[in-house]
Simulated scan of single mutants.
Amino acid sequence: MEFKDYYKIMGVARDASQEDIKRAYRKLARKYHPDVSKERNAEERFKELGEAYEVLKDPEKRAAYDQIATGHQHGERFTPPPDWAFDFNVGGGGFTGGDTTGFSDFFDSLFGRNTGRRRQAGRSGWSGPLSGHDQYANIHISLEEAFSGGTQTVALAVPEIDAQGRLTNKTRTLNVMIPKGIKEGQRIRLSGQGGPGLQGGTAGDLYLEIRYKPHRFFHAEGADIALELPVTPWEAALGQAVTVPTLGGKVELKLPPNSQSGQKLRLKGRGLPGKPPGDQLVTLRIVTPEAATVEAKALYKKMAEIMPMNPRAYMGV
């Protein structure tokens, strides 16, 4: 049978809140309801949505699904593990009023249905301890934090088993160590900080994916840091030394004589730390001073006489 990624079907992230899931279902149900939708596959999509929502709307069923879903892709071949035994039949957790008619074999293989067809389990529901599922979230840091490392405090909504054995969401504050030189897209693993285990099982891990905050003038290209550097015409023409900002502080850069706008220069090892470290890529942008005074206009006219040129000659004009 095929694996069903219920999060993908509903278009929500794995760490979506229950309110986000409800909102997504309402929006898509209106779009694909067979009585009103003109989509060719409306009825099929509507049933698929109903199946996904039946699982994700309930924290306990969602936690059970997450236990089995880690590492699987939507549509891939799937066989439930032989020891999977969670009882969602009436009187043992039960469905919350959803009509499961027409749901997929995948759904039936994991949860059974309230018609009595289900995988056998003990009266307690779980056949033994189950480890908590891994959780994923994004963390936004500045380029300066990526360069220097440090600690960032993050607040996350995480599932927790309360005293009555119910799965609830609770806001937890964590102090996260940011390694020097960490790149966008890399993940920080926090062992045991993911979903709670059930029946004495160990907690899953929490993976925080790095995202960079926008910067005023830097942007990252892997381990390299790119910068557009404004220079004057005389600095470019004469090949003067200019001061350049980097994440590690100011440095001097000697421009090649007769530098042109758009020319790229490289500051070796001035990007993000690492083995090897990244570079800083500097793109020159020549800024032309305004001819705001009589003297400035006269100087421009003199330059035109001394250094006549047609920068559009290659265009044939």
Rank of each mutant, 00 (worst) to 15 (best):
Ile178Thr: 02
Gly204Phe: 13
Leu198Tyr: 06
Gly185Ala: 13
Ser191Arg: 09
Thr202Phe: 02
Arg172Val: 08
Gly181Asn: 01
Gln193Tyr: 07
Arg187Lys: 12
Arg172Lys: 13
Pro179Phe: 11
Leu206Glu: 10
Thr173His: 04
Met177Cys: 05
Gly195Leu: 07
Gln193Ala: 09
Met177Asp: 14
Ile188Asn: 02
Ile178Gln: 04
Arg172Gln: 09
Gln186Asn: 10
Thr202Lys: 12
Asp205Met: 15
Ile182Trp: 00
Asn175Gln: 14
Gly200Pro: 08
Gly194Glu: 04
Gly204Cys: 08
Lys183Arg: 15
Gly192Ala: 05
Gly197Trp: 03
Ile178Asn: 02
Tyr207Pro: 14
Leu206Thr: 11
Lys183Ser: 07
Leu198Ala: 13
Gly200Asp: 03
Gly181Arg: 06
Leu206Arg: 09
Ser191Cys: 02
Gln193Ile: 08
Arg189Tyr: 02
Ile182Glu: 00
Leu174Trp: 00
Ala203Asn: 15
Ser191Trp: 09
Arg172Met: 04
Gly181Glu: 03
Thr173Lys: 09
Arg172Cys: 01
Ile188Lys: 00
Gly185Tyr: 04
Val176His: 04
Gly181Met: 04
Arg189Met: 14
Arg172Glu: 00
Ser191Tyr: 10
Leu198Val: 13
Thr173Cys: 03
Arg187Cys: 12
Ala203Gly: 14
Gln193Lys: 14
Lys183Ala: 12
Gly200Asn: 07
Gly201Val: 12
Thr202Cys: 04
Lys183Trp: 06
Gly197His: 08
Arg172Pro: 05
Thr173Ile: 08
Glu184Ser: 01
Asp205Cys: 15
Gly204Trp: 12
Thr171Ala: 06
Ile178Gly: 01
Lys183Met: 14
Pro196Asp: 00
Gly201Trp: 08
Leu190Gln: 06
Asn175Lys: 13
Gly200Arg: 04
Pro179Ser: 11
Gly201Met: 11
Gly204Ala: 07
Met177Phe: 05
Leu206Pro: 14
Gly195Trp: 11
Pro179Asn: 09
Ile188Gly: 02
Met177Tyr: 06
Gly197Ser: 08
Arg189Ile: 10
Gly194Lys: 09
Gly201Lys: 08
Glu184Cys: 00
Thr173Gly: 01
Ile182His: 00
Lys180Asn: 11
Thr171Asn: 04
Gly194Met: 06
Gly192Tyr: 05
Leu206Trp: 12
Met177Thr: 14
Gly197Tyr: 03
Glu184Met: 04
Leu174Asp: 05
Pro196Glu: 00
Gln186Trp: 01
Ala203Arg: 13
Gly195Thr: 04
Arg172Tyr: 02
Leu174Cys: 07
Asp205Ile: 15
Tyr207Gln: 08
Tyr207Met: 11
Gly195Ser: 11
Gly200Glu: 02
Gly204Ile: 11
Gln199Asp: 07
Ser191Lys: 11
Glu184Pro: 03
Arg189Gly: 10
